[in-house]
Write a protein that binds this DNA or RNA. Structure first.
Length: 472
RNA sequence: GGUCCCAUCGUCUAGUUUGGUCUAGGACGCCGGGUUUUCAUCCCGGAAAUCAGGGGUUCAAAUCCCCUUGGGACCGCCA
């Protein structure tokens, strides 16, 4: 079989992590099976769909490396196709015009719910003669198109969950178009899946109840065998409900802006609901394409864990090539103008193992860029040492530093000169800790030799002097 | 409320199809230790699931069957 899957985002908001997971699984499945991916923008909701969101979706998909082979098709540009099928259903009396006001519908809905019934349209307008329906529409009356849902059992074999049966007698007739130019979701999905020869519909679990509706539409339209369906477990927030706007901004753009890598996001999302069956945790997109299988997809929902994403992202950052890392970090560096490339590269490389996300570089490295360090003098002394002793130590260090030639001012030389001195104290921390704090103004930071080398002789000495002054 | 889906450490999960090798394995996070002047990295170790509960079937059940409970999704002239 020639596998064809679809990416059906709705441009009513930015691309978010939940979308990406679904699209990713479609992509991986298609690649694994040697099939093709079709990008289909589901923009039938004229009020909510925005071109800017379509842009956001496309750009972020490209950034992530999730590519498609056909499209983008836009449903808003396919009105004629839907109209044709709408007319067919109307003509064959498989659909009818409904003139019920929203007020009436709302009243009926509430009555049904208070009686403990599932809310559904009772079929009021189904009784209106076809001729009368047509006349009313021709005379300009507003109406919507309802599809007659046959009261029968509909079943399908979900590739992940097995056989699922629905009793459609419990469902009312569904609205498939607001007017001939405005078709609705279930209808356009069925039509397009057929028109685009989709073989596998892989989507979120929240679509399970739409499936029998689409299958009935598919049958009514005489489309032949429906595609195969696979419903993925949902991604949940920490509170164990479906990930949504309520849970903060989960847009790809936000993660991108914070310095998460595409490869890390892909790796993380792939492992949310799927696993290779062994203990491996790190996968490239290429590897995933080779190994993915629907059989290994989880049935139960998975909680989105930021801590886990952070870990995977850190893993990817640690294996980045120096120049790639520098380029990636550049937007997050406090000030790229005042320092040369070489220095910036050294800074980034130094912090590499400390980054969970690229944006961490900002705070981690600001002391390199600061004109003046501000910190509490109390953090200067090493393990309960007295202020006086700390000051003496720094003064001794200062004298050594001042004696070092500009040419010798590099990490290796600084270490070979200072380390023996530090050892003489019996506890190297007594000398090295105050020096490091004087240079960085922080309790935790890279080592003093690395920092001093990057800072240069002049700045380093100024900072040590400043620390000594603070201890007066 | 109705319908559907799901159920192994806090979280992601292996193991369930073909019952025994599972006194349930790995990873994240957490705790402790080592390396290191500190942080981070790295290395070692630990706590953490009576396999939701109950009942069956069986010599044997996380694995098969039934019931209960719990959680989630959907019920729109959104997708």
């Amino acid at each position: 079989m020639n596998v064809r899957v679809r990416f059906p985002p709705s441009p009513t908001g930015p691309l978010h992590m939940g979308n990406v997971r679904t699209l990713l699984f479609n992509f991986l499945f298609a690649k694994k099976e040697g099939g093709v991916c079709i990008l289909r923008v589901e923009d039938t909701d004229k009020e909510r769909s925005k071109k800017e969101w379509e842009q956001d979706i496309i750009e972020n998909l490209q950034w992530l490396g999730i590519t498609w082979d056909e499209g983008p098709y836009r449903q808003s540009e396919r009105t004629e196709i839907y109209k044709k099928y709408l007319e067919k259903l109307l003509k064959e009396n498989k659909a009818y015009w409904c003139f019920c006001s929203e007020d009436i519908l709302e009243t009926v809905r509430q009555e049904q719910q208070s009686r403990g019934e599932a809310p559904r349209y009772p079929g009021i307008c189904r009784e209106i003669p076809t001729k009368e329906q047509e006349d009313r529409i021709a005379n300009g009356e507003k109406g919507v198109v309802r599809f007659i849902v046959e009261p029968k059992k509909v079943s399908f074999t979900d590739l992940i969950r097995g056989e699922i049966v629905f009793d459609m007698a419990l469902s009312g007739d569904i609205v498939i178009a607001k007017d001939m130019e405005t078709p609705l979701y279930n209808f356009t999905a069925a039509v397009d899946d057929r028109e685009m020869r989709i073989t596998h519909v892989i989507r979120g679990e929240d679509h399970i109840t739409n499936t029998p509706k689409q299958i009935l539409l598919w049958e009514a339209l005489g489309f032949g065998p429906a595609p195969l369906y696979a419903h993925l477990p949902l991604i949940m927030a920490e509170d164990h409900t479906k990930l949504s706007k309520r849970h903060g901004n989960n847009s790809v753009t936000r993660y991108r802006q914070e310095g998460y890598l595409p490869s890390a996001i892909i790796n993380f999302l792939a492992l949310l609901g799927w696993n290779p069956g062994d203990n491996r945790e790190i996968f490239s997109l290429q590897e995933l394409c080779k190994e993915f299988s629907l059989e290994r997809v989880q049935k139960s929902p998975a909680v989105f864990s930021l801590e886990r994403l952070d870990w995977i992202n850190g893993e990817y950052i640690r294996v980045m090539a120096p120049d790639t890392l520098l380029k990636a970090c550049a937007p997050f560096l406090p000030d790229t103008a005042s320092m040369n490339q070489e220095t910036l590269a050294a800074i980034v490389l130094l912090q590499k193992e400390r980054l969970k996300k690229l944006s961490n570089i900002t705070e981690l490295s600001e002391f390199f860029f600061a004109k003046k360090l501000t910190y509490d003098t109390a953090i200067l002394p090493w393990k309960g040492a007295a202020l006086k002793a700390t000051k003496n130590s720094l003064e001794a260090t200062l004298r050594i530093l001042e004696g070092i030639e500009e040419n010798d001012w590099n990490k290796e030389r600084l270490e070979t000169i200072l380390m023996p001195e530090a050892r003489k104290t019996g506890d190297r921390g007594a000398m090295l800790w105050p020096l490091r704090v004087a240079l960085t103004g922080k309790k935790g930071s890279p080592g003093p030799f690395e920092v001093a080398a990057i800072l240069g002789k002049e700045k380093s000495i100024a900072r040590v002097k400043s620390a000594i002054e603070k201890l007066q």
